[in-house]
Each structure stands twice: as C-alpha cells, then as structure tokens.
C-alpha cells in the first residue's frame, strides 16, 4: 500500500506539467490549429519562469512570465497559420527549433556574472508541497493531497475545461470552428478571432506546464529540461480524443512511467538505464499506432477535429 501511494505521488507530480500542456494543446487543436511548437513553448516557459523567480523571488511572477512567453510564441504561430496561411506543421516545428535554441542561448546569458552568466546549477524559490491535514494521511488518497499549488489548481481546471468545452455556448462555437469553419462562419462565428484566442490560450497553458518543471518538479534550470515532453503532449492530445477530462488518464499513464522508471533505476535493475529511458518514447509510438488503428473506421468520440491543420478563408471556394 505504501509503495502504491509513493508511486502515485510521483506519478501525479510528473504528470502535472504534461496535463497543463495537454489541456492547452487540446483547446488549440479544437479550434482547428495544430501547434507542434509545444516542446519549444514549454522550454521557453520553463526558462522564463525560472529566470523571473530567480531575479524577483516571486513565484506568481514566474508563472505569469511563463504564460506570457508561451502566449507570445503561440501568437506568432496563430499569425503565421491563420493570417499568413502558412503550413502549420512547419510553423510549429520552427517554434520548437527556435524555442529550444533560444532557451539554450538565454540559459547561458541570463545568469549572474559570478556564475559566468549561466543559469544552470542555480537554485531559486520553488513551490512547496502542501499536505492537506487529516485527509492527507489516508493511504492512496493521500497521494493526491500532498502536492504543490499548481497541481491542486488542476483539480479545479480540468472539470472547468471539460465543462466549458462541452456545456457552454462558447465551447460549442470553439468545437464547430474546429469541425467545420465554413458552417461556423455561416452562422456568424468569427473563425479568425476564435482561432487566435484559443491558440494563444493554449500557448499560455503550455508555458505554465513548462513553469511547473523548473519551479516544482525538477527545480532549477538545465538545458534540455523538457526532454521531449512537449512531443509526448502532442501524443497525449490524440490519446485523449481531444477531451480535457480524458487527458487526465494519459497524463497519469505517462507520469506513471516516469515514476516506475525512477523507482527501478533507484532499486538497481538488470535492465540498463538506456532501455528504461526509452520506455516513454516507445510507448508513445505503440499507443499512437493502436489508437489510430482502432479509431480509423468511423468517426468516434476519439476522432480528431475535422478541420485540424487546414487554413480557412471566407473568399476560398
């Protein structure tokens, strides 16, 4: 029982950044915009969050700065893919290439002079783990109740995100833009505005996910801190069937792999570390293939928004 609680505890902690970013990308893709820049936005979010907290000592500023960084990058993506009708795959890839390169540059530039301007190896404020009294002592359940503020916030955000998407008028407009922008425009929905709004909102949440990495999960900056998490997020969006509630299971599954991997390494198994580290990437490929094969026959609740990745203009016939 103790082992399950510990594993679950680490799982939730590792899954938090994934879940924030997945929620963000779900909203972006629901509007029909595919943003493959998650890795780059997460990286920049992680970097700005840590830098701001290191400089100001204020965790809230750090989180806001990360959201701003993610939002600005997403705005660029929205401009290129909505207004300039650029190829969304390539635009997203460029965000990732730029974000990783720029974060690496800034990481060696924004530190204090005595650390030769490096951010690596520094420690700053971090989100403390808050244990909920009484309830936090119940086995298994306690894993959910010994987390940091950002994780607790998710317990509220996930149901809200689900409710907004499926039970409100705005959520309906958002979904219809992703399904069929022409029809949506015909009933008077401003497709361009919706696509911009939710791409930027998505980027802000992705940036927030990055902030959780440097401010809570593995406090401090290190180059390549995201380690492909942004790409796993893209896969998690597909697993969730673009549904915020189901995204929880994917985040727990992949957070769990991290936890188990860590546990096995600590226990010293015969399997070399390299093979253990392959697990999340291989699992992504396998689950993705399984999901695609299972849902390709007809439109199910797991199918992608029909207009995902295509540009739209009223003038086009």
């Amino acid at each position: 029982m103790q082992l399950i609680t510990t594993l679950l505890l680490v799982t939730i902690r590792a899954g938090t950044s994934l879940l924030y970013a997945t929620l963000g990308e779900v909203y972006t893709e629901r509007s029909g915009i595919l943003n493959l820049g998650v890795e780059g936005m997460m990286m920049m979010g992680a970097l700005t969050a840590f830098t701001v907290v290191y400089r100001t000592g204020n965790l809230l500023f750090g989180v806001l700065a990360a959201m701003l960084a993610g939002g600005c990058m997403a705005l660029l993506h929205a401009f290129l893919s909505v207004s300039m009708r650029a190829n969304q795959v390539v635009s997203g890839l460029s965000l990732t290439l730029f974000g990783t390169g720029f974060a690496s540059y800034l990481g060696q530039r924004l530190g204090p002079a005595e650390n030769s301007f490096n951010l690596t190896g520094l420690t700053g404020e971090r989100f403390p783990i808050i244990k909920i009294p009484f309830l936090g002592d119940i086995p298994v359940l306690s894993a959910f109740l010994q987390q940091d503020v950002l994780t607790y916030l998710l317990y509220i955000i996930v149901p809200l995100a689900w409710f907004y998407l499926y039970r409100t008028r705005d959520g309906l407009s958002l979904r219809s833009v992703g399904e069929n922008p022409r029809t949506a425009a015909a009933v008077g929905i401003n497709v361009t505005k919706i696509r911009y709004t939710y791409t930027v909102l998505g980027g802000m949440l992705v940036g927030l996910g990055g902030a959780h990495l440097t401010l809570a999960y593995t406090p401090g900056w290190s180059e390549n801190i995201t380690g492909g998490r942004g790409w796993i997020v893209i896969a998690l969006v597909i697993f969730s069937g673009w549904n915020p509630a189901r995204a929880v299971f994917g985040a727990i599954l992949f957070g769990g792999i991290n936890a188990v991997q860590y546990r096995m390494q600590a226990a010293g198994t015969v399997i070399p570390a390299s093979f253990l580290n392959m697990a999340p990437y291989l699992l992504t490929v396998i689950v993705l293939a399984a999901m695609t094969i299972l849902s390709r026959k007809k439109k199910t609740s797991f199918s992608s928004p029909s207009a995902l990745g295509t540009s739209f203009s009223i003038e086009d016939k």
Binding site: L80, N87, S91, L97, F98, G101, S104, Q108
Partner: peptide
C-alpha cells in the same frame, strides 16, 4: 564569450519570415 547557441537562434529565426513570405 557569447554562447555558441547564437548560431541556433539565427537558424531558429529563419523559418518565421520564410513561412510568412510563402503567402
């Protein structure tokens, strides 16, 4: 003593105007 990643930054910046120009 500037970070070598400056080369990567310029490379990363290249695609944005390129994509915007396709239109």
């Amino acid at each position: 003593g500037l970070p070598a990643a400056m080369g990567l930054v310029i490379q990363g910046l290249l695609l944005f105007p390129l994509l915007a120009g396709t239109i």
